[in-house]
Nucleic acid binder design. Structure first.
Length: 597
DNA sequence: GTAGCGCGCGCC
DNA sequence: AAAGGGCGCGCGCTAC
């Protein structure tokens, strides 16, 4: 069954079964919600229907309540209202179009659910008066802030839910969309759980890395001595005693003044020149990056009680990959991963999907030859083995070039060989690029569609189509068109890979519950991850094609099996019997840094 | 004083 | 090695 949750009268939360019209199952005060949700979870195992997981779920987790399934209306709306597979359904007016825009950051912001002015004023879905009453009324519980999402009336939740189900049913591919919405919603639950659990982080280990690389922590507002030394060396070598090496403009001038003809100060370009200033400059940049991005200030700000808790934003990018906010969680440098260490008696199961995107492409295109190259071995070596290119590096560059739209360089030169060997795969990405170049949308396997190009893009195209357009106008328009084509080319692959990863994680998450409930528990040492997770294996990190599970060591082998099974299951869900494999690089370790990258 | 932008660079 | 997709963040700098 499904249970919708939303505000019902001032200061009350209503739980409603969408399939019956005879009034709510319960109405409760917000502080009673967790207990009631837990009771229904045990007795009915419902799919919870709510506006926004990022607002509802953290308070449940904080109370130690975990739910299995939900339907996140904000995330689902973002998919359904833009999918090319619902164009006809939307045109036939399956209910008025209610815009459920994603909300801002859940913790600091306390922003209200955004209701766009156009629909808010007269839409039956949002009765503004109810909204105001519900949110402005004094709340009995501290946890419920003013203008909180609890203020979305349960009637509005029910109406939007009905509209969404109708869109799915009337879409071109209801089965795929159902899977996508379930996976996206599971991702939303996982995102909240990742934040609640946190990534185990050893401050002392991190500080040791900083000390080794940077030396002792400098006084506030100062740079580490080692950086100062390198900067002085750079200034001396450039003969520019006052240059600020942190200023791109300043530095570029000084480099040119010293006869180094560079267009930028980026590392790769500097590396092409031979000058005594370059080595200390590159070394400086490396240290500066560590110091400012993951130095002592970062530790002070982000590591609390031995956990790193970034905020995950499921569905945060156009392709369906997640975004994060805070702490740079998508960019943890390899050298600070030493600090990711399991609790005593616990282990980390680290797994990443090997060459996920090319495998997804093979599956998407039903390219048997390409799938065969990845079967039972390293994908790139498989391409070499098939005689397409000579070396593994060439295979890698060629594949990346095909998926990203490389036109020049070695990558661009190798792509045609790939096209001859794998014509179906190449045709799929070429078609996606062509759609983008003419401004059309493209769609992933499960139904997520690319956004339309922006106003600036359209203006450039229409300018170029005028009779008085200059050659420069036309060049610009073609260039913009190709840029967008590279985006849509990559979109179908990256977006479908994100869908695979969601299915992988969702499948794994439910297997972890099974493991926890069947394992002998009393001997397990509690982790420090909080009540909902302290005795069960749980996900602690996710990065596009890589996951980390924190587990009691005695369950690690079982967890590893579940991770592998979930990967196979995800492949089945997306590609059925098509013989494309998704092998993992998997390790059971104490520290994240022990994993070969 | 701060909002917004470009750069550079970390990750996939 | 090459210059091609997606991100977030800190910095310096400019414009307001």
């Amino acid at each position: 069954m499904r249970i919708a949750v939303g505000a019902m009268g001032p200061g009350r939360v209503g739980l409603v079964d969408p399939s019956v019209s005879s009034g709510p199952l319960e109405t409760v005060a917000p502080h009673e919600l967790a207990g009631v949700v837990q009771a229904f979870e045990s007795s009915h195992h419902p799919r919870w229907v709510w506006a926004d997981t990022r607002r509802w779920y953290p308070r449940l987790l904080a109370a130690g309540v975990r739910v299995d399934r939900c339907h996140d209306l904000v995330l689902a709306a973002a998919i359904l209202d833009h999918s090319t597979t619902t164009v006809a359904a939307r045109a036939h007016g399956a209910g008025p179009r209610a815009e459920w825009l994603p909300a801002g950051p859940s913790e600091a912001g306390q922003a209200a659910l955004v209701v766009p002015a156009a629909s808010a004023a007269h839409s039956a879905l949002f009765d503004l008066d109810d909204f105001e009453i519900a949110t402005d009324a004094p709340m009995p519980e501290q946890a419920v802030g003013p203008r909180d999402v609890l203020g979305v009336p349960v009637d509005a939740v029910l109406a939007e839910h009905a509209r969404q189900l109708a869109l799915v049913a009337a879409s071109e591919r209801p089965g795929a969309l159902r899977l996508l919405l379930a996976a996206e919603s599971a991702g939303a639950l996982i995102g909240a759980e990742l934040h609640a659990a946190g990534l185990p982080w050893h401050r002392e280990v991190h500080e040791r890395v900083l000390d080794t690389e940077l030396g002792p922590r400098p006084a506030p507002g100062r740079k580490p001595a080692r950086m100062e030394q390198l900067a002085a060396e750079v200034r001396a070598m450039l003969g520019a005693p006052t240059v600020n090496v942190d200023s791109q403009v300043d530095l570029l001038k000084a480099l040119r003044g010293a006869g180094i003809q560079v267009e930028s100060t980026s590392r790769w370009e500097l590396g092409e020149h031979d000058h005594p200033a370059i080595e200390p400059l590159v070394a400086y940049k490396k240290l500066a990056r560590l110091f400012s991005a993951n130095g002592w200030s970062w530790l002070d700000e982000w590591i609390v009680d031995g956990r790193f808790r970034p905020e995950y934003v499921p569905g945060g990018t156009a392709t369906g990959r997640w975004a994060t906010s805070g702490g740079g969680a998508l960019q943890l440098p390899k050298n600070v991963r030493h600090a990711v260490v399991a609790d005593p008696g616990w282990s980390l199961v680290v797994a990443d999907a090997a060459q996920l995107e090319p495998r997804v492409l093979a599956g998407l295109a039903h390219d048997e030859a390409m799938a065969a190259a990845g079967r039972g071995r390293d994908f790139y070596s498989g391409i070499v083995g098939a005689g397409v290119v000579q070396t593994r590096d060439q295979a890698k560059v060629a594949i990346l070039g095909a998926m990203y739209g490389a036109t020049s360089g070695e990558s661009g030169r190798l792509v045609p060989r790939l096209a001859r060997a794998y014509p179906r795969a190449m045709a799929l990405v070429d078609r996606a690029a062509a759609e983008g170049e003419r401004g059309a949308g493209v769609t992933t396997l499960l139904g997520r569609s690319s956004p339309p190009p922006g106003a600036e893009w359209r203006a450039a195209q229409s300018l170029a189509s005028q009779p008085e357009a200059t050659a420069a106008d036309e060049r610009r328009a073609r260039s913009r068109a190709r840029d967008w084509g590279r985006f849509t080319r990559n979109f179908v692959v990256q977006g479908t890979a994100a869908e695979w990863a969601l299915c992988w994680m969702a499948g794994l998450r439910s297997k972890l519950v099974t493991i926890a409930s069947t394992a002998a528990q009393p001997s397990v040492a509690a982790s420090r991850s909080g009540s909902a997770f302290e005795r069960m294996p749980h996900l602690v990190y996710y990065l596009h094609d890589e996951i980390i599970v924190h587990t009691p060591t005695e369950l690690a082998e079982q967890v590893a099996g579940a991770v592998t099974d979930a990967a196979t299951g995800a492949g089945r869900l997306l590609f059925g019997d098509f013989p494309v494999e998704f092998p993992l690089d998997l390790a059971i370790v104490e520290s994240y840094a022990s994993v070969d990258a």
